[in-house]
């Protein structure tokens, strides 16, 4: 990427994770199991688009090359995306989608709370605004994971399968790299070790209540934060960016 400032990459990670996750869950619009969930999940996609836009606008401002959120979202290819691998994973069945959202929210909410104390006032302002929406997502998906895990035999098995599939994608969010470390030392971002503790507590408590078994494997996938993605991201972006690719700079 084209900026030396670690905060550029850091805000890209947040913005890209929001945008990619929003795109993923919008795939449910018109297809969710019931009308109420359809509207609920579309709402969450909209919240995430809004937050992604704020983070990407800030990233563009930090970069200082005149790129705004739209330019960053629509005019970058997969290798330039910095979203976490978890966010680009396919929806699977409804249970797998809910599990993915839950694992994400369990990380994102405490991170936002930490970021709202950032010494960078722009970061703190976005985090404070986003935390309200994220609190609702967090409560909603925690509740659904418990209901579906501790539901029927079929819903339990589907949630366990979802957890097993997604588990290896959770480590990346919680493991600090150089950029996380630099910004933590500078007082711009919270220490990921603290976030990991909150994440572990909430996830293990919820899984226990949901009668689900936390996978024992410690093997974790990584690469999203550095632009090395699973094959899924290219397809997702092809759909998301189609209009701008076919009709460059089209506006409405």
């Amino acid at each position: 990427m084209s900026s030396e400032d670690p905060l550029f990459d850091y805000t890209l990670r947040l913005g890209d994770s929001c945008i990619v996750l929003a795109q993923r869950i919008s795939e449910w619009v018109g297809h969710a199991p019931i009308l109420e969930e359809d509207i609920g999940i579309a709402n969450i996609a909209l919240d995430l688009v809004g937050q992604g836009r704020l983070w990407l606008d800030l990233a563009g401002e930090i970069e200082g090359q005149g790129r705004d959120a739209d330019a960053l979202a629509y005019h970058r290819d997969a290798g330039a995306y910095r979203n976490h691998l978890l966010t680009e994973q396919p929806n699977g069945d409804f249970g797998q989608t809910i599990m993915r959202q839950f694992l994400f929210d369990a990380w994102y909410l405490p991170l936002l709370k930490g970021l709202s104390q950032s010494n960078d006032s722009r970061v703190a302002a976005i985090a404070e605004k986003a935390a309200k929406e994220a609190s609702y997502h967090h409560a909603r998906h925690t509740d659904l994971v418990i209901s579906l895990g501790d539901g029927t035999e079929e819903s339990h098995d589907r949630m366990q399968a979802a957890l097993d599939v997604l588990w290896p994608y959770t480590g990346e969010m919680l493991t600090a790299d150089k950029i996380d470390g630099t910004l933590c030392e500078a007082g711009t971002a919270p220490d990921l070790a603290g976030i990991e503790q909150v994440w572990n507590d909430h996830v293990s408590k919820t899984l226990t209540a949901a009668t689900l078994t936390q996978p024992e494997s410690n093997f974790m996938q990584s690469g999203g934060k550095a632009g090395r993605h699973s094959e899924h991201l290219g397809f997702l972006l092809a759909e998301m960016q189609f209009l701008q690719r076919a009709y460059p700079d089209a506006v409405w």
């Binding site: 019931i34 109420e36 509207i39 609920g40 709402n43 909603r140 509740d143 209901s147």
Partner: peptide
């Protein structure tokens, strides 16, 4: 009105359906 499995989820669904 709306459908929900329990009261808590009915409140959440109501939030999404009627207070957007």
């Amino acid at each position: 009105s709306l459908h929900a499995p329990d009261a808590e989820k009915a409140v959440m669904n109501a939030r999404d359906v009627y207070t957007r």
